[in-house]
Design a protein around this nucleic acid. Structure first.
Length: 223
DNA sequence: ACCCAGGTGGCCC
DNA sequence: GGGCCACATGGG
């Protein structure tokens, strides 16, 4: 069908242009989760600084975060912005993980995807995108991640008009091959595209038909 | 001096 | 259910 081919065609163009992204950039599933929370409406560079602080302080594990003073955590998180909010969110997550799963993500990830998603969404500070990022990149379950870039690009190239999270998520999940790697790469590639081009290429505003949009043009781009 | 960044929750109507 | 707003830092 039409939509499936369209989605796959975009994927191929992105993949051919950018290559595999190998997301999520992190050393462990736990670090993925921390990153997912810290990157909420925040530049990834700032998140890296905060994660680096946590690593230097050797607190990048559930137990130590739970035991650390709130003010300490806030200081480590400061570069990532919203640091008081995020300190609270990290506390909430590790508390849940420790009290229900002995701090072991493996145990938590044993749950079926639907149930696990509900459970994550019930936690303070975890909304749909963060939940799906955790499911996809930490738990490695097939849950498509929708973010501001996905909304913008998809709308721009005419995939959908809606801005509703679950409608967009359903659109991708209905029309993509049921393949974990494609889910992971697709989202990462959309982010890469947005970061690299969508703010800098003029005329991108109304995309799909724009002659210099990377998604509709065959020639390669130079930054 | 703005504006934005891989959102979320709280409050109001 | 939708429309605002606070949350905060660092880089253009």
């Amino acid at each position: 069908m039409r939509e499936k081919r369209k989605l796959l065609s975009i994927y191929k163009k992105l993949y051919a242009h950018f290559g595999p992204q190998h997301w999520w950039p992190a050393d462990s599933a736990f670090e993925v989760i921390i990153g997912a929370i810290l990157t909420q409406n925040t530049n990834w560079k700032n998140v890296e600084k905060a994660i680096s602080n946590l690593k230097s302080a050797k607190v990048l594990n559930p137990k130590t975060i739970l035991e650390s003073r709130k003010s300490k955590i806030e200081n480590w998180l400061r570069p990532s912005g919203y640091y008081r909010q995020k300190a609270k969110k990290l506390k909430v997550f590790v508390k849940h993980l420790l009290s229900h799963y002995k701090g072991k993500l493996r145990l938590m990830f044993n749950k079926p995807i639907v149930q696990l998603r509900e459970e994550l969404l019930a936690l303070h500070g975890i909304g749909p995108e963060t939940a799906d990022s955790i499911l996809l990149y930490a738990a490695e379950k097939r849950s498509f991640v929708v973010d501001a870039y996905t909304r913008r690009i998809g709308k721009r190239v005419g995939l959908y008009q809606t801005a509703d999270y679950h409608e967009i998520k359903a659109y991708f999940e209905k029309n993509l091959p049921h393949n974990l790697e494609i889910y992971k790469e697709y989202h990462a590639l959309l982010v890469e595209l947005a970061k690299k081009y969508c703010r800098t290429i003029p005329l991108c505003e109304k995309c799909p038909i724009r002659s210099n949009c990377i998604l509709t043009k065959k020639v390669k781009y130079k930054a």
